[in-house]
Design a protein around this nucleic acid. Structure first.
Lengths: 379, 379
DNA sequence: GTCAAATAATTCAACCGCTAAACAAATTCC
DNA sequence: GGAATTTGTTTAGCGGTTGAATTATTTGAC
């Protein structure tokens, strides 16, 4: 019960626009001022909340002490393995990114163990930086472009050609020592980053992650949707044409064959260079991208009909390509989504830069602390 | 806290295979025997639990008093409006159907108000029957083949040609008096019925409801998934061929055009008669149904890739047709679902008879009481 | 400049609900 | 018939919330 109320109070502080007073919290939580005072005291000595000077207020009365999340409370380390880069960042309790780093380079020729060791090294460096700045990293999360079990087993990461890689086991005792590391899908964590950075009114959406493959993270009522076993969001292998070209996964006509990076950059250089060329050659873009957007729209329409979300966020490489893609996606959605007749869909580009999943991963760590403050307050 | 523990104890009784003793409940909930005793006492005087004679047990010790859900506790009324029938039933706390009724007849020519009044009348009759048998109906739920808002507004029921029908408002003060009635989608409630009747190990699945249209109810971890606004599960309008035939909804190549009742019964009499003919003419069935199953499989594969469930239940008219449909569905799923490589999909026919949604609706009412016993215990 | 009004936060007694341990009840085993 | 065993109840104690009274700190009026 105490644990629940601690989380309740902390959540109210996190959600507030201005630093709330204890009295504000009592009003918004329904608890007594006495109770809130006791809870806040625990959270302050636990290092999760801090008092700020009283904000000038109109009218009489004793001024209220504002409460904010402690900027030097426990921090989260986010790591990301992707096909063509490794990334990491440290985020404080308020959600502000404090340190970040990216290592470019194709990871496909590197063995899983070496990739994991490299990203752990990157994480250790960031952790040391954070410590030097006065921040203790409380935990880490690692984003991987593949299907991950709760135990930290990467079942399959097709575009890295990983297969039953025990990521959690490999990381244990490495450069990160005994820091607890959770492992999750890249699109899921990027969707969380979008949820918290994207801001205003974003409640339920599908985040489409265009990297080498196409993944999706589904957020419903500000909560990540994981499916029954945590393997949801394989948008890239939703069928667009039942007898289309064969996909790497063995099936016919998967979306990835129409809107994956390789399809978009056919006859162009791979990676950033190809993307730049595509954006520069407006003729080519105007020809190739709307078709991909239509396929994306067909697949997403099916998803939306089943899942009922009202917003699609285009992320990864789809973000910068959104000007060409979004109109086609939108057209297909309004044509095919049953509810769009009275509740139109929104399609927007992601508000995030590169390495969104790393930011989301770090954010997930601090959100876990905020959701479960009781453990942290005991120490 | 008390409310939570009341629900916890009640849930354990509901989930148990044999009538548990207070000591069993203490063990399974982690509470003390003393606490459980106090909670059970409240639930017994509240009329939700009943004691049964001690079951003969091996070994020494005082015999335990078994606890069961009270068969004469508050009951739930389930109602269903469908294109070609109205149905209703009363279910007691244990989930047993005690009274039921069906009114056959095409509802399409009838006005929404008349349909709603008719189904309410059916409900009132069942309620009176239940009362005569000693059961008080505590609430009702109505299943409608369409998209329903939380406020009881039927936004659209395409196959009834309903459009913004205020079902809750129309029912208020009618034959059901002031009995609280919730309104929900037919496939959702049928899925709940499957969850509770289907039994063993059914945890996460997609229930496919083949009626005039094709709907789906999604259950994840024994919990109904509703999407952001409660409009999930429109499987019938998932795209199978982006440039297939035009659907009533305006889009091209919707699943309904390939596996809807009208497509299955082309050139055959509509309704039951046509279905009987189709099943009798094995040549025709073997020719027509696997193709429909393949389309169903393509659409479901996309759904499963996104939602990550491991079981598909074929309900409505797809239930009796499952022998012809299921193999094709299964083949398509194992070909197209990414996770099927290491975690094969299950496709099975529904265990339910007709009017599954009415049973699910009544079950939903009693499950609500069981989930929130505190309110009931106060009186 | 002092005092009343207003608002914030703390203190303290009372109470609710759970726990732990002792105790009473009802049966089997020897 | 008595020891052993298991169930269920009773009682004291404790954590945590409530509600009222109290203290603290400011604004505004006279």
């Amino acid at each position: 019960m105490r644990a629940h109320n601690l989380a309740l109070v902390l959540g109210q502080v996190a959600a507030a626009h201005r630093p709330p007073s204890r009295a504000d919290l009592a009003a918004s939580t329904g608890l007594t001022r006495a109770t809130v005072s006791a809870l806040v005291d625990d959270l302050v000595v636990g290092g999760l909340l801090a008092e700020v000077g009283p904000a000038p207020r109109a009218g009489a009365g004793r001024p209220a002490a504002g409460l904010v999340l402690h900027a030097y409370g426990p921090a989260g380390l986010g790591l990301e393995i992707n096909v063509d880069y490794l990334a990491g960042c440290v985020v404080d309790l308020t959600g502000t990114v404090r340190h970040r780093a990216v290592l470019h380079g194709d990871q496909r020729p590197v063995s899983p163990t070496e990739v994991l060791t490299a990203v752990a090294g990157l994480g250790a460096r960031l952790r040391a930086e954070a410590l030097a700045a006065g921040r203790v990293v409380a935990g880490a999360a690692l984003a991987v472009p593949g299907l991950v079990s709760g135990t930290g087993l990467v079942h399959r990461a097709p575009n890295l050609a990983w297969h039953d890689v025990d990521a959690a086991g490999t990381l244990a005792g490495g450069p990160l020592g005994d820091l607890p590391v959770t492992i999750d899908n890249e699109a899921n964590l990027a969707a969380l980053a979008e949820l918290h950075a994207g801001g205003q009114g974003l409640d339920s959406f599908v985040y489409v992650s265009g990297e080498i493959g196409i993944g999706a993270g589904i957020v419903l009522h500000r909560d990540l949707f994981r499916g029954a076993r945590g393997w949801s969001g394989e948008l890239g292998h939703v069928c667009v044409h039942p007898d289309g070209p064969r996909c790497r996964c063995g099936a016919l006509g998967c979306l990835e064959q129409y809107a994956g990076q390789e399809a978009l950059l056919r006859d162009l250089p791979a990676g950033e260079a190809g993307l730049a060329r595509l954006r520069a050659d407006t003729d080519l873009a105007a020809h190739r991208l709307p078709a991909a957007g239509t396929s994306l729209g067909v697949a997403l329409a099916g998803v939306v009909n089943m899942l009922d979300v009202d917003t699609v966020v285009l992320g990864g490489i789809f973000g910068p390509l959104a000007p060409w893609l979004a109109p086609a996606v939108e057209a297909e959605l309004s044509r095919r989504v049953l509810t769009s007749a009275w509740s139109p869909m929104t399609v927007r580009a992601s508000a995030l830069g590169p390495a969104a999943a790393a930011v989301g991963a770090a954010g997930a760590v601090v959100r876990d602390i905020l959701a479960e403050p009781a453990e942290w307050v005991r120490t």
